[in-house]
């Protein structure tokens, strides 16, 4: 199933958040959404969820989980199976298997019996990611899933995204995005500036209104960076 948005505009308190967005997220691809803070990425994702939630084929991980949950980590992950049987009977063998796999994949076996509220930001993100994986949906929709994570866990999340059938990922780390995405949607000011299958300096310059340079490492990876002069200019 492709996810389609056509001519979507949204104003909140007279401020334009989304401005005539038309795009298709293709099944089987990892689409990365890039853009400066406040350009409407999260709002776009929420609109997609609003439109397609009833298909039960989306799993979502928000930027952060706020408030007092008062649930154990294991309970939180088990909620992923709610739509299967509404918990009128216990978890099936299939439910349990999905949960165990997700827990193992996100490396949180030792956290299962802790209170979710006592975890660090990064641990909470991994728990929520495990919960999304255990939903076993066609689509994974992730809003900055790696923002609080150390390098080894960033890799774990990226591996999980690659294994997913289809995904939409909002990211800030451009180089991580360059390694992960099959397709890129570049946004600024509530608009899609461009859609592309590869990231280039020009596209990044247009999106972030900065001057990016590119280099290729000895093992063949492309790295985008901001020239030193420009960084110091910004600091002034």
């Amino acid at each position: 199933m492709n996810l389609e948005i056509s001519n979507l505009s949204l104003k909140i308190n007279n401020k334009t958040i989304l401005d005539g967005i038309t795009t298709t997220f293709e099944e089987g691809k990892i689409t990365v959404v890039l853009g400066p803070n406040g350009c409407g990425k999260t709002t776009l994702i929420k609109e997609i969820i609003k439109k397609y939630a009833d298909t039960k084929e989306l799993a979502y991980v928000a930027q952060e989980t706020t408030g007092y949950l008062n649930l154990m980590v294991r309970d939180v992950i088990e909620l992923s199976r709610y739509s299967n049987n509404k918990f009128y009977r216990g978890l099936s063998a299939e439910d349990k298997e999905a949960i165990e796999q997700a827990i193992e994949m996100m490396d949180i076996e030792d956290k299962q019996n802790q209170l979710f509220d006592t975890l660090s930001g990064g641990e909470k993100q991994r728990v929520m990611m495990a919960r999304a994986l255990a939903q076993e949906t066609d689509w994974l929709i992730l809003d900055e899933p790696t923002s609080n994570l150390d390098a080894s866990h960033v890799r774990k999340i990226n591996d999980a995204v690659r294994q997913a059938k289809s995904a939409i990922v909002v990211m800030h780390d451009i180089n991580e995005a360059a390694r992960l995405g099959d397709k890129y949607i570049l946004m600024n000011n509530g608009r899609i500036i461009e859609e592309s299958n590869t990231l280039t300096e020009d596209l990044l310059d247009k999106t972030f209104e900065m001057d990016f340079s590119k280099m290729v490492t000895s093992d063949g990876q492309t790295i985008f960076y901001l020239a030193k002069q420009q960084e110091s200019k910004r600091a002034q």
Partner: peptide, 19 residues
């Protein structure tokens, strides 16, 4: 009751789970 637990995950996540 279990719907309350699902709602704790946030509005969007709850929607993807049918609540």
């Amino acid at each position: 009751a279990p719907m309350i637990d699902v709602l704790k995950l946030g509005k969007e996540t709850a929607e993807t789970l049918g609540v």
